[in-house]
Simulated assay, not measured.
Amino acid sequence: MIVTIIIAAVATICVLGAGGALTEIGPWYHSLRSPPWRPPNWAFGPVWSTIGVLTCIAAVLIWRASPTPWDKTVTLGLFAINAVFNILWSLFFFKLKRPDWALIEVAFLWLSVLALILDFYPRSPLAAALLVPYLIWVSIASVLNRAMVRLNGPFMGRADRGLVKGQS
Rank of each mutant, 00 (worst) to 15 (best):
A58V: 05
P40N: 12
W48F: 12
R38T: 15
V74A: 11
L22I: 10
P27H: 11
L78Y: 09
S66V: 04
A43K: 09
I87N: 09
G19H: 07
H30F: 13
C56L: 15
V74D: 09
N82C: 10
Y29D: 13
A21L: 15
W37K: 07
A80R: 02
A65Q: 08
L76Q: 03
F79R: 02
A59K: 02
W42I: 14
V60N: 05
S34D: 08
V60W: 07
V47C: 11
L78F: 05
N82H: 14
I87M: 11
A65L: 03
W63R: 05
E24W: 08
S34R: 15
P27I: 00
A65G: 01
R33I: 10
F85Y: 14
A21S: 14
T75L: 14
W70T: 13
T73I: 04
G19W: 10
R33P: 00
N41V: 09
E24F: 06
P27F: 02
F44C: 09
V74K: 11
L54T: 10
P67A: 15
L76P: 00
T23S: 15
H30E: 15
A59M: 13
V60F: 06
N82E: 09
D71V: 03
I81T: 14
W70F: 14
R38E: 13
R64T: 10
V47M: 14
A80M: 05
H30N: 15
S90W: 08
W28F: 12
L76R: 03
